[in-house]
């Protein structure tokens, strides 16, 4: 039986893509005051940024309740006897805990494994996509899990920010604290290291950050998967894809947007590329 793959909404696997690939996405929740929305399900990225710009309320987020995972497990347990759950870094969210605690509730012989991706956004999304591909081609849960374990350190989400204000406010700034509070306008570039947000560099203009993202991808010898995503600036992201088409086929690039829950921490004008580096020969 085919292994079923579950992830959470911070993977930035859009509903369309999830449906197309047969991946189950468990949503986190984003809240404006007392209004709560399931990430991507009840609120789109565009709606989120409209509200963020027009309201004074600072949004908050909540990990999925274990019951959402229980529902997903129970549904998939009828279709398969093996489920692999790959979720956002435990340093950033308690989603891993929710997924894990839901495991004990589900009875029956379906085997469920939960993995911490140590990543987020399409850095997580690309890992999930590869896991799904392997599952579709008939690999067992153990085989997929072992392959994913090798890929986790090879997944590089690189994000260029307008400001780290939101990340700092949301308490997820991690080691990028060193980049906070600059007295010059700079665009910080961050990545994930060992599950934590980590600084790469700072650039002075939007153009320079596009150059940086391009050069980052160009500097990787062999690419297994590539994704480009935006928050509020689709044109910039498209331009980046266009530019990258000289080194990676455009039709193979996963194009996504940051989810409202991620948007809470990254703010507007963010641009990200995620590269899953292929294993050396």
């Amino acid at each position: 039986m085919t292994v079923k793959i579950i992830t959470d909404s911070t993977s930035d696997i859009t509903s369309n893509l999830a449906q197309e690939l047969g991946i189950t996405v468990v949503p986190l929740t984003v809240s404006f005051g007392h209004e709560h929305f399931l990430d991507r399900v009840e609120m789109t990225t565009d709606d989120f940024y409209r509200r963020l710009a027009s309201e004074n309320i600072f949004p908050t987020t909540t990990q999925p309740s274990p019951s959402l995972f229980v529902d997903a497990y129970q549904k998939l347990a009828q279709e398969s006897d093996e489920i692999l759950v790959i979720v956002v870094s435990g340093e950033l969210s308690g989603t891993y805990q929710s997924a894990l605690s839901a495991k004990s509730v589900v009875e029956g012989k379906c085997r469920i494994e939960v993995m911490d991706s140590l990543s987020v956004a399409m850095g997580l999304g690309l890992i999930v996509i590869v896991a799904n591909k392997m599952a579709q081609s008939g690999a067992s849960l153990d085989e997929v899990a072992a392959a994913i374990k090798r890929r986790i350190p090879r997944s590089h989400p690189v994000m260029s920010f307008d400001t780290l204000k939101y990340l700092a406010k949301g308490g997820r700034i991690g080691r990028a604290q060193r980049l906070a509070g600059p007295l010059l306008k700079v665009r910080p570039v961050l990545t994930m290291r060992n599950g934590e947000v980590s600084p790469l560099t700072r650039l002075r203009s939007q153009k320079a950050s596009l150059d940086y993202l391009y050069n980052f991808v160009a500097g990787i010898a062999s690419i297994e998967e590539l994704a480009v995503e935006h928050a509020t600036t689709p044109d910039d992201a498209d331009r980046l894809v266009e530019r990258l088409s000289s080194i990676y086929p455009r039709e193979r690039v996963y194009r996504s947007t940051v989810s409202p829950v991620l948007g809470t921490y990254v703010g507007p004008n963010v641009l990200a590329v995620s590269v899953l580096e292929a294993e050396g020969k």
Partner: peptide, 11 residues
């Protein structure tokens, strides 16, 4: 000096 400082690569 400011440009050099900004070019610092954390990795």
């Amino acid at each position: 000096g400011a440009a050099a400082l900004l070019a610092f690569d954390y990795e």
